[in-house]
Design a protein around this nucleic acid. Structure first.
Lengths: 227, 227
DNA sequence: GAAATGAATATATAATGCAAAATTAAAAAC
DNA sequence: GTTTTTAATTTTGCATTATATATTCATTTC
């Protein structure tokens, strides 16, 4: 049998702690494990049918990602996001996304632009239909696609780490109509400048877009904390 | 006994895996564990006199930091840095450091500027004396101080993660005299713009500085790999 | 009755044990 | 002599067990 056509095998097997890390991350992001709550080791072990060793390994990883806090001899807590955290995280995310835009413009192909345009149009549909959750999902995908077009794994890893932490909770849901209109307009600009390969302008727009998103989230989070 | 004068005791105890993580990180950064080499669990357990559980936890953490690679059922390897890695990492570091410069300018105190000036002058001394290792150490401290002045822990964590990965190895050592002169000149500018709280200019200079450093490292690494 | 101490319980950490996989060494076949 | 097979050894992954630490609750003392 000739195997030469088969290129560098991905075929990467996954270990238990890796799968657990992903599963737990998903549970935290989706809110199944609420912020501020203690991570119930025993229950999770039973839920996934594993012993505590791999679970604890997964928690160590999540701790470096900032999704849980480990208190020595006291266990793990799902980390809560404060307004101060957001104020710290968004400038960093904005800088990273601006870079992603710049890099993407340098090498993005027409096909990739068209794929993003397709996502954009679907998002536009959900916007017009007033379907907020679907809008958010597409919005997320577009930002991921820009990141992917930058072809820089390091950038992707760091951006995603922050994005995952921010994306938690449900406080995104209460976005005003005005802000939504504005965000959609910004996305038109993003697509336009990306198609034109105008990296300088795109990075400014992305930075600005994320800054405004930050303000929205901030107020929403404040509203939750205050009331 | 009155204990009220004693302020909130840190006295934060550290667990074994935490200490191990730090120790191993230091071993990797210092080059005691050479890049590309396998990290046998058994040897390290004996070296530190611990069992495999906390060691393995530490390795998981280092893997998320990108300092080691874990291959399922095959163990841990100290991750090697390729030219491609550098090309990925430096734009991200540059973006983060530019942000640090901007943020620092917004709030840095005169005292903090003076502290950095002191570091700068010491570095200048080592530059004039041709003491490269001492120069590097101070150089590192200055960049850390700017980062600290930005007062953004998220930024610090992400920058440091990259900085730690890059700082490894000894390929920094062979810097040309021309590049050294240039780097020192750039540092004069950095200090100048920082003192003037000129965030926009500072971020540009920092970005440029890091880009040039990247070129130097790149060539040095290529020289190592090629010959 | 409130505060403080100490015992009991619960929980977290780290060490050990065992099974599965991979590596190495040796033997057999070509 | 080289390659392939097979066996032995080592190493890793996960579970279990033991120890250390924290928390709770009852008891004592003021």
């Amino acid at each position: 049998m000739n195997l030469t056509t088969r290129t560098g095998t991905p075929l990467r097997r996954r270990s238990l702690h890796e799968e657990l890390t992903e599963a737990l991350r998903e549970m935290i992001v989706s809110g199944q494990l609420p912020m501020g709550q203690k991570v119930p080791e025993k229950d999770l072990c039973e839920l996934y049918g594993v012993s505590r060793t791999p679970l604890r390994e997964a928690l160590k990883v999540l701790a470096t990602d900032g999704l849980v806090n480990l208190e020595p001899n006291r266990g793990a807590w799902v980390s809560a996001i404060t307004v101060e955290d957001l104020d710290e995280m968004f400038p960093v995310m904005a800088a990273l996304e601006a870079l992603a835009g710049e890099l993407a413009c340098k090498q993005i192909t027409d096909d990739e632009v068209e794929a993003i345009r397709a996502l954009h149009n679907r998002m536009l549909g959900h916007y017009k239909a007033g379907e907020l959750p679907e809008y958010f999902a597409l919005n997320q995908q577009i930002h991921e696609a820009i990141l992917a077009a930058a072809h820089n794994d390091t950038l992707t890893v760091h951006y995603r780490s922050l994005s995952t932490r921010v994306r938690r909770g449900r406080y995104m849901a209460n976005m005003t109509r005005e802000r939504w209109d504005q965000a959609m307009a910004e996305h038109e600009l993003i697509l336009d400048r990306l198609a034109a390969r105008d990296g300088a302008a795109l990075s400014v727009i992305l930075k600005d877009h994320l800054e405004k998103t930050s303000v929205t989230l901030r107020e929403s989070l404040l509203g939750q904390q205050g009331g």
